[in-house]
Design a protein around this nucleic acid. Structure first.
Lengths: 138, 138
DNA sequence: TATCTAAATGAAATTTAGTTTCATTTAAAA
DNA sequence: TTTTAAATGAAACTAAATTTCATTTAGATA
């Protein structure tokens, strides 16, 4: 929790109970989660309102504490940036999300696509398919 | 329009006026468009209801006439599969969407990620950054 | 060609994700 | 401690997408 306090102090915003809880949750879950999942996760103790969760995740995105991740379903999810840049394997059968450490196209960012004269600053890559379990050994 | 008729006959579903109009629209626009954009595009003649547009795009996706494309905003868009597999450059400033012909990671599909024992069947890659115009020559 | 029927349509109601409003509360500066 | 701008959260709202169900229609069958 000390770490959470320090991070929040560094972004130049008020260090509220709600923000600490939300950031802590993102650390604990350590995978892409939607605002509603964060809200549900915290709702037992019921200390944080839905609106605050949405607003706080947006703030965290602006401050680069989280990155936005979008899967095929179009729901906006966020993942803590203390996990370094990576992509995901998403099972089309059971929905499991597996982080993929190595990024084969990291070199794209900062480069210019010649034909289009386009400067790439970020990229989204998600891989879909079937996990070991769902393939039943095949 | 002959082409549209033939395609619809081949998927084993009724060849309705609405389906023909929607497929024709996807051919004409030839870029990722949302259900609402298709609806608006057709609304002058007002021949197709909103529900039908949503349902038809889902049908087309199941029949592989269109593929689903998701950008950062989370809105579900579709693009005709008569355009072969490719990705997009999306300008963070003006929103322009530029198709990117070459796919550097096409070889991923059908391959197994060893560490995770995961069979990849499809992938989503979108590149964000700044187009020539918005960079003002830089 | 007329009849029939399962499939398709679309208006309206509903659901879900996300945003805005505004009165109240609070972190932290003075 | 007082003060105040920032933050919160309930409720209202918006937008995207889905469901319901009465009506229409494509195209198979007689």
């Amino acid at each position: 929790m000390d770490r959470v306090n320090e991070i929040l102090r560094n972004i130049g915003k008020k260090c509220t109970e709600q923000r600490k809880l939300i950031l802590q949750t993102l650390f604990e879950l350590a995978k892409p989660v939607s605002a509603d999942e964060v809200y549900e996760y915290l709702s037992e103790t019921n200390k944080v309102g839905r609106t605050t969760v949405y607003r706080t995740l947006e703030l965290f995105e602006r401050k680069k504490l989280v990155r936005r991740i979008i899967f095929k379903d179009g729901i906006i999810r966020y993942e803590s940036t203390h996990l370094k840049h990576h992509h995901h394997l998403i099972c089309l059968s059971c929905g499991e999300v597996i982080p993929l450490e190595h990024c084969a196209i990291a070199s794209l960012d900062g480069s210019v696509i010649e034909d289009a004269d386009f400067l790439v600053t970020e990229h989204f890559l998600e891989l879909y398919g079937y996990c070991k379990k769902c393939r039943g050994g095949k």
